[in-house]
């Protein structure tokens, strides 16, 4: 609550100047934006730099309903990752409309972070040891597992049934490796939506990736598609940042931790991934940041 308290004080002083203290955001939960947040951060930190600039670039997915999805007509993407991005931006005093959303795909998340093309990545970005060698990953802020999306009434009801079947996912994704390990023939496509279409057209038997993503597709097409089986992997979503900015880890953990405590995390979940019903999960424990 540290930043929120400062924000409240600052809001009093600035109200007269006509600055809005909070921003309404489309479809998502309200996020309080900290004013004069720049004063909270030490000089030389990335957070100070971003707060001074008053803008932030966040890499997100554009093709995962519920997580990060931008329809052709929308101005900005929506989803749980987007809400977490707004929480982080707000703590820097940056309103939702000052965030630049940049589409990242599985292949370019590390290069984007290394080249500072994006300041943080929130893109269903599983924490792995290999990735942590070259980028920073704070979290997890959400845990999901790989599941199967099938046509309603399919013979496949569990991961044990995929042996010898054709199962699609995104080319180059870990999900595809896992499905190969389960004895299925992996069929990689460029986007999740193409893969979903293959399931609908019956050219593959199932689609497999993080359950959170599959739930989004099932919710869009409840008459034809369903998510089956228990998760058979654990994907721990983290916030990616440039590994040189070590100070960002604690800031991310603290900021999202505050959101979890004050119910903002739950509100974000219910407005996005939880839309299709089901219980709101308990937020996961964070990994400790390196000193």
């Amino acid at each position: 609550m540290r930043y929120a308290a400062v924000a409240a004080v600052a809001a009093l002083t600035l109200a007269a100047c006509g600055n809005a203290g909070s921003s309404e955001t489309e479809g998502g939960a309200d996020v309080d934006v900290a004013d004069n947040a720049a004063e909270d951060f030490e000089a030389g930190t990335k957070m100070k730099e971003l707060a001074d600039a008053g803008s932030i670039t966040i890499g997100v997915k554009f093709d995962q309903p519920g997580i990060g999805f931008k329809s052709a007509t929308a101005d900005a993407p929506a989803g749980f990752d987007i809400e977490m991005g707004k929480v982080l931006a707000a703590s820097l005093g940056i309103a939702a409309e000052d965030i630049t959303w940049k589409e990242t795909v599985s292949d370019n998340r590390e290069p984007f972070l290394q080249a500072d093309e994006v300041d943080v990545v929130l893109a269903s970005y599983s924490i792995t040891d290999e990735r942590r060698e070259i980028v920073g990953q704070a979290g997890p802020y959400y845990i999901t597992g790989q599941q199967l999306l099938v046509k309603k009434g399919s013979d496949i009801t569990d991961v044990a049934d995929v042996k010898g079947q054709e199962v699609c996912s995104v080319t180059g994704s870990t999900s595809l490796d896992n499905i190969r390990a389960e004895g299925a023939t992996p069929r990689g496509f460029d986007t999740y939506s193409e893969c979903r279409d293959q399931v609908l057209d019956g050219t593959v038997e199932a689609m497999s990736t993080d359950g959170s993503i599959l739930l989004g597709y099932a919710a869009e097409n409840p008459d034809e598609l369903e998510v089956v089986g228990e998760p058979f992997s654990e994907e721990r979503y983290g916030v990616g940042y440039n590994i040189e900015n070590t100070e960002m880890c604690q800031w991310i953990v603290d900021t999202i931790g505050d959101a979890e405590e004050d119910g903002e995390w739950a509100k974000a979940y219910e407005a996005t991934l939880g839309k299709g019903g089901g219980e709101t999960p308990t937020p996961p424990e964070f990994d400790a940041c390196a000193a």
Binding site: S106, D107, V135, S173, L176, R187, G188
Partner: peptide, 18 residues
């Protein structure tokens, strides 16, 4: 859906970004 050389390369780069 065809796991030819380029698809394999994309899988490997995703898992071994370093």
């Amino acid at each position: 859906g065809l796991a030819e050389a380029t698809a394999t390369m994309r899988g490997l780069t995703n898992n071994n970004a370093n």
